[in-house]
């Protein structure tokens, strides 16, 4: 009985992680600009990884392995903002213009 509850809770966490992975990928496809795509990839993946790792830890139970599981989100929570910030700063330094909604509306009015 307890084992069944454990498996159901773990599956719920894994499915929630998959949901955030899916939104991250859809955002990468749908957003119009490189800065907006960074919003999608950097953070949906981080939360998805955290949720899936929590699901794995609940499924596996507690022993020495679960400390190793903790190391991955701990590292990712430091690395993922660094990567996102680094790519964004490279975009600013290269002079990429951010996409804005009002400009497209203006061009539509002109045309």
């Amino acid at each position: 009985m307890l084992h069944t509850i454990q498996i159901i809770v773990a599956g719920f966490f894994i499915l929630a992680g998959l949901f955030f992975f899916t939104t991250a990928t859809l955002g990468l496809l749908r957003f119009p600009d490189f800065y907006c795509r960074l919003h999608a990839t950097g953070k949906g993946d981080t939360l998805g990884t955290l949720l899936m790792i929590v699901g794995f830890m609940i499924y596996e139970g507690f022993h020495l392995l679960s400390i190793k599981f903790v190391l991955i989100p701990l590292f990712l929570f430091m690395a993922s903002p660094t990567v996102t910030h680094s790519i964004g700063r490279a975009g600013v330094s290269c002079g990429v213009e951010p996409w804005e909604k009002k400009e497209t509306e203006k061009t539509e009015e002109v045309s």
Binding site: T25, L28, L29, R37, T41, G42, T49, I87, G91
Partner: peptide, 29 residues
């Protein structure tokens, strides 16, 4: 594979770098 589409046909290079990073996160899982 959906991310790989962005990595191959992405409009600029920085989008490709971001897509590759996202692929790396999913590969760990």
């Amino acid at each position: 594979f959906i991310n790989l589409y962005r990595a191959i046909y992405g409009p600029d290079i920085l989008t490709r770098i971001a897509a590759i990073n996202a692929i790396g996160t999913k590969t760990v899982m």
